[in-house]
Design a protein around this nucleic acid. Structure first.
Lengths: 249, 249
DNA sequence: GTCAGAAAGTGACCAGATGACTCTAGATCA
DNA sequence: TGATCTAGAGTCATCTGGTCACTTTCTGAC
């Protein structure tokens, strides 16, 4: 029963002819969609700078504040990156469909365990797919990440942690399933934030390195079931350690 | 320096004493976090109205526009709902960690298939968990949804579609894993939007109803493996239909 | 009691201005 | 020559103050 009294004068979308008058309520709502369409159309990639707020305001014939509100939404979704005095930059592929909430403070312990359980369901399957779809160059990439991690075994906590997560992300990407890849990216974002906060000294460096190598070996050997099993064992170990650590506190 | 004539009466931040002076750049960044903390602390639930923009501006001693930018981010994450002339309302549990991008236009065909494959990995597992964790009242809820769906078999497309998706969401919630539950909610949001756009007349009503009943029967019978298998079969069927439909076009 | 209309509250948006930060092209200096 | 410093332009961050649109509520007439 939605007989809208809204006059709804067919609005010409971006590209060329701009609308003459933008209907009052929720210009920013449509603007957000229009903006992302425009940025996609211009083929902007992560790292690229988008036009300035004032330029966009001129282009869409709205006030700069309205543009800012629309861009803020895309920032919340992790798609854009604001840099004071410099500009607004693309951060993630603009077609990304699944994202994580960047404003979750510290996760509840049970949510953290749910998160690991989710990884435990998804990642072994991805490792399996990675065997099927991974070419030589992809395997070389995985190897490169683990080599860098080995070199950082004695170094910064954060660097090593990032590299280890990169390994997991790379496998997710390798699976070829974009949705699952983005889902894993989001889950790992959450996990990384948590790791920085309460798992700072979770120091199973050698063990992580060993288990990651085992996964890579299985992938290189073309053994999907083994890759899944190694990944499962690895994450089960992680879960055990995290659970013990949560209890300790 | 910004020697503001502003008296800067020590702003009483939430909880207790926080920073005295808010650093100029990116007030909205911290504001977003502070706002969500405040709303959580006040125990606001989905459906509740949050304080007005001007009230919040006064409370945090910033301009209304700054509050708006912060709230826009939470809107993009699906946590808040702006209603012109009425107020801003809580839409989702504020602790939600995984969300979908509401500004994805039409999904690429391969992404849509990836989406179904993701469901195919996750949902059978959730159906299995639902058997273990589901009590009598939960099963009654599932039954209620399917009964309503049956009554809508001849009615609105959209109503039936919503009910069918509700069935899947309910099972995801039943699993007890909050992260996987939210992940499924996000995936189903994407699927629902797509369904509205290109699968309008995907009309396997009776078949859907039958297969949903089969899943429910397995859950009620306390047979986890069977529930997973029925869910897998159901989704495999969906995938086949969607794939055929995509090829047809 | 019902209904229409006024009034208040609230969001949507614009215009204009100031401050702060980044980046770069010249100018300066060793 | 080459490195360093500086001034300026470009850009984001925020404030102030206003107008309009929509919703909700209350009031008064019927």
């Amino acid at each position: 029963m939605d007989m809208e009294p809204k006059p709804a004068e067919a609005v010409p979308r971006l590209v060329s002819a701009l609308r003459t008058i933008r209907p009052r309520p929720n210009a920013a709502d449509e603007l957000t969609q229009d903006l992302i369409d425009l940025l996609k159309q211009e083929g902007l990639q992560p790292g690229d700078r988008i036009p300035s707020v004032t330029a966009l305001a001129g282009r869409f014939a709205v006030a700069p504040q309205t543009i800012r509100e629309a861009l803020r939404r895309l920032q919340a979704l992790g798609l854009l990156d604001f840099r004071h005095g410099s500009g607004v930059y693309v951060r993630e592929p603009l077609a990304r469909v699944i994202v994580s909430n960047p404003y979750t403070g510290q996760l509840d312990p049970d949510v953290l365990l749910d998160l690991i359980d989710a990884r435990l369901l998804i990642e072994p399957h991805l490792a399996c797919l990675a065997v099927v779809r991974g070419g030589p160059d992809a395997i070389a990439e995985l190897e490169r990440i683990l080599d860098l991690a080995d070199q950082s075994l004695e170094g910064q906590d954060e660097t090593l942690s990032d590299l280890n997560l990169d390994f997991h992300r790379a496998i997710a990407r390798l699976s070829g399933n974009k949705v699952l890849g983005q889902t894993m990216d989001s889950l790992l974002d959450l996990y990384a934030a948590e790791q920085m906060m309460i798992l700072q000294v979770y120091d199973n460096r050698e063990r992580d390195a060993r288990e990651h190598r085992a996964v890579l070996t299985a992938i290189r050997g073309g053994r999907p079931d083994l890759a899944a099993e190694q990944m499962r064992e690895h994450l089960t170990g992680v879960r055990t350690v995290v659970e013990a650590r949560l209890r300790a506190h």
